[in-house]
């Protein structure tokens, strides 16, 4: 056998000889250890509690207390996105859904859809890691409460837009992390509290599919308009 340690008895707890001694030793130990434990708990009456009182009684928003590396809700800076589809390919869950097409008038590639289903996303960070252009990244936003499941799909492209042809170095500076998402966040849950969710609204909403490029000549209308909520929502950050 592998080295087996013989039963050792620690010096301060030597088993007592005789039952009478054991009897009184038990009483002494029970009282003294309880006394010891109570002195520990008593000291906590004078020590600072750990709790912070989220969400109202705090000095600054929790988002600002989180480290930069925090993996919160994903956001895309469409000015830097080249629609290379790396993120869509690497996502283990298929929660990123990108569609692009060629505009027949200008001949440029246009991205018609960049949806991220944050209800499906597991915040693993593989997509952000694989993005070579710093377009897709995690923010420190985490309060993504919504009232209906279709709101969990973030539409980063509201209407078709040209895909950038610039090299990484020439691209506009990455917008401040979280600024794009913060504009969309009012849509999280607080937009139409009275709205009743119907299963058909979800069925009409896009289901993440792996086939991305479609060659439709007419730029598709934002699919999310099927959901009545999306029509009058504040539009996400548009191209300058």
């Amino acid at each position: 056998m592998v080295p087996t340690v013989p039963p050792a008895v620690s010096p301060h707890r030597r088993p007592p000889r005789g039952t009478v001694r054991a009897y009184f030793r038990n009483i002494r130990l029970a009282l003294s250890t309880a006394f010891d434990g109570m002195s520990v708990t008593m000291s906590y009456m004078f020590r600072r509690p750990l709790t912070i009182q989220y969400p109202d009684k705090i000095d600054k928003p929790v988002q600002e207390m989180l480290p930069e590396s925090y993996r919160g809700v994903l956001e895309v800076d469409m000015d830097r996105c080249t629609v290379c589809l790396q993120c869509q390919k690497i996502c283990p869950l298929g929660c990123i859904n990108i569609e692009s097409c060629k505009n027949p008038e200008t001949g440029n590639r246009e991205v018609t859809k960049f949806d991220i289903d944050i209800g499906l996303c597991m915040y693993c960070g593989l997509c952000a890691e694989t993005c070579n252009f710093d377009a897709l990244d995690h923010t420190r936003e985490f309060e993504a409460t919504v009232t209906t499941p279709d709101q969990m799909i973030l539409h980063f492209v509201e209407k078709p837009r040209e895909v950038t042809k610039l090299k990484a170095a020439e691209m506009p500076v990455r917008k401040h992390k979280g600024s794009i998402l913060q504009k969309m966040i009012p849509a999280f849950g607080r937009r139409h509290p009275q709205e009743v969710w119907t299963p058909t609204a979800y069925a009409a909403a896009p289901v993440p599919a792996l086939k991305a490029p479609t060659a439709t000549p007419k730029p598709a209308a934002p699919v999310a308009s099927a959901a009545p909520s999306a029509a009058d929502s504040p539009t996400p950050e548009q191209a300058p």
Binding site: L50, L66, P67, S69, Y70, R71, M122, Y123, C124, G125, L126, E129, H138
Partner: peptide, 29 residues
């Protein structure tokens, strides 16, 4: 309470408090 501190450190290291997804093939993220 002590674990919260570890979670904070982990959050700095890899961005998550519980589901780290920190290791990569040939290193760490």
């Amino acid at each position: 309470r002590e674990r919260e501190k570890i979670n904070d450190i982990m959050e700095r290291i890899c961005g998550a408090r519980l589901t780290y997804n920190y290791m990569r093939f040939g290193g760490v993220s």
